[in-house]
Every structure is written in C-alpha cells, then in structure tokens.
Computed example of a mutant assay.
Amino acid sequence: MGRGRRRARRAELPVEETREGVEILKALRPQSDLARIASVEEPVDEVPEPTSLLARPDAIAEWEATHDVLPVLRSLPPRQRQILAWTLAGFTPTDIAELLGLRAETVRANLMKARRSAAAYLTAREEEQ
C-alpha cells in the first residue's frame, strides 16, 4: 500500500518539474577528479626544469635539523610530546597552560621532563653512531 502512494505522488508531478530536478541534480553532482584537473590546467609548450623543493638550496641543513626532531618527539609520552612541540613552535609555558586548561607549573614540569627525556634519547643515539 505504501508503494502505491509513492507512485501516485511521482505521477502527480508535472514532467517539466521532474526534468528540472534531474538537471539540478546533475549540476550538483561532483565532477570526477580527472575532469576537474583537466578543466583547470592549461597545456604548455615546454615543461620547466625541475627545481629544488626548498626555496633556498642551502636550507637543506635547516630542514634536516627540524625533521630530526620528529623521532625525539615520538619517543615521548603524549602530554610531554604535546608541550614540547608547542614550545618548539614558539609558545610559552603560560600560553600552553591557557590553551590546554592546565596550570603553568604543570606545563613547566612536563616541559622539564620532556627536555630531559629528549636529551637522554639524543645521547643514546649519538652513542650508537
């Protein structure tokens, strides 16, 4: 009985309204990625020479130094990792305490533990090499 009612409602719609609805749905349907890329890119005559991913070629040492921190951060407990990462990003312990809803003393204590753990990790890694 429910199906009959649905069919009856569909049949009541004028043909123009159903066609308009189909066109609206087609317009709202997302394009495929390939079609979207093809519509944005323009062909070029010559492909430019590949360049360094870094703005300055001498910045590789700086990049390595910042990415060398990741294993150290991964070795820390979550709270210490969070606080040390925010400190490396330039936040002060007071800022971090406000953002995390902690006391500044708690942040400083976790930062001190994180620094000690990081120093121990780096010392152990240097001894391995």
Rank of each mutant, 00 (worst) to 15 (best):
E62W: 14
E62I: 14
E62H: 14
E62Y: 13
W63L: 13
E64R: 05
E64L: 11
A65C: 05
A65I: 05
A65K: 13
T66P: 05
T66E: 15
T66F: 13
H67W: 15
D68S: 14
D68E: 14
V69F: 13
V69R: 11
L70Q: 03
L70C: 01
P71C: 07
P71E: 09
P71F: 08
V72Y: 13
V72I: 15
V72K: 07
L73F: 14
R74H: 08
R74E: 12
R74A: 14
R74V: 04
S75A: 15
S75Q: 06
P77I: 11
P77E: 13
P77Q: 15
P77N: 10
P77T: 12
P78E: 14
P78D: 13
P78L: 12
P78K: 15
R79E: 08
Q80F: 02
Q80H: 09
Q80W: 03
Q80Y: 05
R81K: 14
R81S: 13
R81H: 12
R81F: 07
Q82V: 03
Q82L: 03
Q82D: 02
Q82C: 00
I83R: 00
I83S: 01
I83Y: 01
I83F: 00
L84H: 03
L84A: 05
L84N: 02
L84Y: 06
A85M: 09
A85V: 02
W86M: 11
T87D: 12
T87R: 11
T87L: 04
L88V: 10
L88K: 06
L88C: 07
A89P: 02
A89W: 08
A89E: 14
G90R: 09
G90H: 12
G90S: 06
F91Q: 08
F91V: 04
P93C: 00
P93L: 04
P93Q: 05
P93R: 00
P93V: 03
P93D: 04
T94N: 10
T94Q: 13
T94P: 01
T94G: 15
D95W: 07
D95A: 10
I96M: 01
A97E: 01
A97Y: 03
A97V: 00
E98G: 08
E98M: 06
L99E: 02
L99Q: 06
L100C: 15
L100S: 12
L100Q: 13
L100R: 14
G101C: 15
G101I: 11
G101R: 15
L102Y: 07
L102A: 12
L102T: 04
L102E: 11
L102H: 10
L102N: 10
R103H: 04
R103K: 10
R103I: 00
A104R: 08
A104I: 02
E105P: 00
E105N: 04
E105K: 07
E105D: 07
T106N: 08
T106L: 02
V107T: 05
V107M: 05
R108P: 06
R108N: 07
R108E: 12
R108I: 11
R108K: 12
A109Y: 15
N110M: 03
N110R: 04
N110I: 01
N110T: 02
L111R: 02
L111M: 03
M112S: 11
M112T: 08
M112V: 05
M112N: 09
A114C: 05
A114F: 01
A114G: 04
R115P: 06
R115C: 05
R115G: 03
